[in-house]
Amino acid sequence: MKYTKFPKSEDKISKLGYGAMGLAGWFEDRTQQQMHRSVINALEQGVNFIDTARAYGDSEIILGKALKDWQGEKPFLATKVESLGPDNTRWGIPSQVEETFPKGHIRHSTETSLKKLGIEQIDLLQLHLYWPNWGVSGYWMDELQALKEESKIRFIGISNPDCRCDTALPLVQSGLIDAVQTIFNIFDPTPLDCLVPIAQQNQVAILARCIMDEGGLSGFLTEDTQFSEDDYRKTFFECVPRRMYIKRIDRLKKYVPEYAGSLAALAIKFATHHQGITTALTSMHVEKYANMNIAAMKEAPLPEEVFQEIRQFHRWIRNFYDTKLWDKEAVGGTLSIKENTDA
């Protein structure tokens, strides 16, 4: 495992982190024992950054039990304050902070997380949503700072709602937060254009999420792949025609095996390459895939020229909230229009 320092601290952070949304059971059925073991398995292999959220079902409870059984060094633990309000107005377009994080809610959510996790202090508390129309001050920021002063949390962060990563810039430049979680992968390297360099200037950590594009970058998707109705990925992979996605994946195969042992390894190595990425989060609730992703960290890093080539020529920005949060016809028949093109 490779490590870096969490800005403004001496904490050594694994460049690959455990993204605990999978512990919510939204992807496939896993037993409590399997999920518990997956946490221990990752920790045993040097992963020491875990990211969960109040909104991830029983994820915090499962993590709390696993960490109680873990005999090694305490990992860096991050969670998120649950955001309130209807999905389509909360995630798709800017909401009002009074609706998303009403007075007292941040503290209540944090206290609940502490109990569920069975700990006395959270390393990183993130707002699960932030819109720049909220500004950089107000009662919500006061609540976060108060929790920090009381040592209930060590660091403050936010999680960007979607691919519009630059919405975090006002807070990054304010000096009031310590981390930003944002989408970052081969198809969406745009944080490198603006967010990452400005975060580096302000000593703000960048937590990369969706680094496997919900698994699509592993190459598992075929024309015939089926998802159950309650599988989170079903909506995600309906953003564009299936054949268009597969065509983009096929273009990446030229880098395998010369520069990566697999497509999944290529995605992992791309996401962890830049020094401005503090840690890259990936689902590790299935040990088989977790072990493969962790093994990718043992491979030689991508040559800089290959990294830059992928960054420049393989970007493909999609906002799956267009189909997740609004009726397809209401957004101009997104799927039917794109179904007739290979663009």
Rank of each mutant, 00 (worst) to 15 (best):
L124D: 04
T167M: 14
D51C: 03
G92V: 00
K298E: 14
R30H: 10
T341P: 00
D58V: 12
G276P: 09
P132G: 04
N340Q: 10
N185P: 05
T334F: 02
V172A: 07
G19S: 00
D87Q: 14
L114Y: 12
M21F: 07
A330W: 09
N293Q: 12
R251G: 13
L43C: 05
L263D: 04
T282D: 06
I50D: 05
M212L: 10
D29M: 07
L169Y: 09
W316Y: 13
Q200M: 14
S95M: 10
I198V: 15
H274M: 04
W134Y: 06
S174E: 08
G57I: 10
Q126F: 02
I211T: 08
W326K: 08
F101Y: 15
S336G: 00
T272F: 02
H108Q: 15
K65P: 03
E229I: 11
Y18P: 02
F236S: 09
A42E: 03
E82D: 08
S228G: 15
S137Y: 06
Q312G: 03
E258H: 11
E10N: 09
L263P: 01
T222Q: 06
E214I: 00
K234G: 06
N291H: 09
M35G: 08
S151A: 15
F270P: 02
K324F: 02
E238D: 15
M297C: 15
L335S: 08
A290C: 14
I61R: 07
A330L: 09
M244Y: 08
H285I: 11
Q145S: 14
R54S: 13
E73L: 13
Q308V: 12
N319I: 01
S109D: 12
K103A: 13
M297P: 10
A24Y: 02
T110Q: 01
Q173N: 10
D342P: 05
L67T: 11
I183T: 06
V47R: 00
L129V: 01
Y289K: 09
T110N: 02
F187R: 01
L84K: 11
M141N: 11
R30M: 12
I183D: 02
D123I: 03
I246M: 12
M244N: 13
L195T: 06
A168Y: 02
K254A: 13
A271P: 01
K65I: 10
P161L: 10
N291E: 12
W91L: 14
P303C: 09
V196R: 01
F155M: 09
W326V: 01
V204H: 10
